[in-house]
Amino acid sequence: MQSKFSKKYNFLAYLLLSPSIIIVITFLIYPSLESLYLSFFRSTPFGNRQIFVGLENFARLLTSETYWNSLGRSLIFTAITVFISISFSLLLAVLTNKNIRGVKIYKSLLIWPFAFSFAFSGIIWGVLMHPNVGIMSYYIQLLTGFEFNWVNSGSAAFILLIIASSWRMLGYNFIFFIAALQNVSPSLLESAEIDGANPFIKFWKITFPLISPITFFLLIMNTLQVFFLTFGIVDVLTKGGPARATDIVTYKLFRDAFLSMRTGYASAQSIILFVIVAGITIFQFKYAGKKVFYQ
């Protein structure tokens, strides 16, 4: 039992906590509850009156093909992006965690994407792969004959989204993996090597279990970030198109809330997103302690 300050200072504890608590309640908890409240209403065409409609917003969403398209695409997009960025950054972190020549240069070049926003990453990749000006799309077509045109083709735009956000997350994941690998004791790996373990065995049996807490943490953080922040790429580049191929849930929510002013319909979407986030968070707390090895 750690020693504490005496009870007469308890008022100070409340005082120290009050700013955080006030902000969380005012700007996070109260608006979230209001999202729930608003999701039961529909605004009149001129937006001056709210009509109670019960669960109608949810019913309309869950029977709307447009919404299922958004939801499905967001989930598939997030899963692919998280898988690519985590596995590739882990591979690079393990390979640069060796005492080889030039490793510092490799490391310092790999972390740069983290400083770029999703929107910036989208702009750069959008130009690189642009059907008219992009150097990458030009050489892809020259070498393979395949025309990568994200302006007209939905699947190309979807792939562009995956590339741009994987690139951004790569830098982020790489830093965390590097930090985690520093804590894996070299003597443990050396003794395994003496016992004749090859690099793959060393990785799967020693390194991977030891860094699994950070991998799990990154899995959750990546999922949430990719799911919510890719909005920036969509808004600067594709605007949900072509043919709704990049109409991810956050972009649809934004359009309904601030362009069509359907606050009730948008709030119902917020509540659906909350259910997804709550699911991920509960999964995190449930499995963080069990399935993950700690040092």
């Binding site: 504490k4 309640i25 979230s32 209001e34 608003l38 948008a266 917020s270």
Partner: peptide
Amino acid sequence: YFGNFKGKNILFLIILITHMLPLPIRIVPT
């Protein structure tokens, strides 16, 4: 560093819950 003052756990939960409330979940009311 302070003992078990009243409501400690619930206050901790209130702060933790921010994890579950990213902006898109409350954007219209905020």
